[in-house]
């Protein structure tokens, strides 16, 4: 049995806003094992991004406990236990692709030789070799997002936290990057927590799918997604795939995700 790396127990989070308190997360209990690919799916406002941000120590829970690699999220963050990929690439426009990928390594204080080696190998991993000297605004949206994945991987974290990383891209690019991400996951054996609102994307990528429901944000159902390690794009037309997708949709419906 693989080790549990992320563990949330009865997590609660309430934001104080001008319109009164907003209950973003309620009673979240979730264990994620090493090497899993977990998708958090649900409508907007269900707290899936907030949950990811709590894991990353970008938000503090108001109740319950969260442990990452057996540490508090803050310790894990300072130990650079994870790489975080945002909705947008968030590359710094004054840095070349190479320097952008090297940014976290500069913050960590690594020497120049280690930095350039890691930058090179990770850019190769996301098929961006040859674009080192380009500036982000000279690249397409899909390439920018790949560069930001390389940047997250350069830290050499044991886990990747991805917040709708392909949400802003068109479907063709998205399919392609989904395929590449699967290969990357198979190659690196990293634990991935992936936020999405696309059912096919979640089913295609995950080993387990966490269906969340809104107001207050809570876990409605956890669905196993055992399609095996080898998943070509056309697996999405197979009965097994459609069955799981149907199950996820039913879960979202039962969690009142489609209510007005």
């Amino acid at each position: 049995m693989p080790e549990t790396v992320i563990s949330a127990q009865n997590l609660d989070l309430t934001f104080e806003t001008n319109d009164g308190p907003v209950h973003a997360l309620k009673d979240i209990t979730l264990d994620i094992a090493e090497g899993e690919f977990i998708s958090l799916i649900g409508p907007s406002g269900c707290g899936k991004t907030t949950l990811l941000r709590v894991i990353a120590d970008l938000e503090q829970p108001t109740g319950g406990t969260m442990s990452v690699n057996g540490m508090t999220p803050e310790q894990a963050r300072l130990a650079r236990a994870y790489g975080y990929v945002f909705q947008q690439a968030a590359l710094l426009p004054w840095r070349t692709i190479e320097k952008n990928v090297g940014l976290p390594l500069e913050v960590m204080g690594l020497d120049a030789a280690t930095r350039s080696e890691r930058v090179r190998s990770n850019l190769e991993l996301v098929n961006l070799a040859g674009f080192e000297k380009k500036f982000p605004w000279q690249l397409s949206g899909g390439m920018q997002q790949r560069a930001s994945i390389a940047r997250a991987l350069a830290v050499e974290p044991a886990m990747l936290l991805m917040d709708e990383p392909f949400g802003a891209l068109d479907e063709i690019v998205r399919d392609h990057l989904n395929e590449q991400l699967l290969k990357l996951w198979a190659k690196t054996k990293k634990t991935v927590v992936f936020v999405t609102h696309s059912i096919p994307e979640a089913v295609f990528l995950s080993t387990r799918i966490v269906v969340m429901s809104p107001r207050p944000g809570r876990i409605h159902e956890i669905i196993d997604c055992d399609l095996g390690p080898d998943r070509p794009l056309d697996i999405r037309e197979t009965p097994e795939f459609l069955k799981i997708a149907h199950q996820v949709r039913e879960g979202l419906k039962a969690g009142h995700s489609y209510d007005e």
Binding site: L78, F86, L92, V155
Partner: peptide, 9 residues
């Protein structure tokens, strides 16, 4: 971008 820098500690 600031969140990004925060994740780097």
């Amino acid at each position: 971008e600031r969140d990004l820098m925060r994740t780097y500690g």
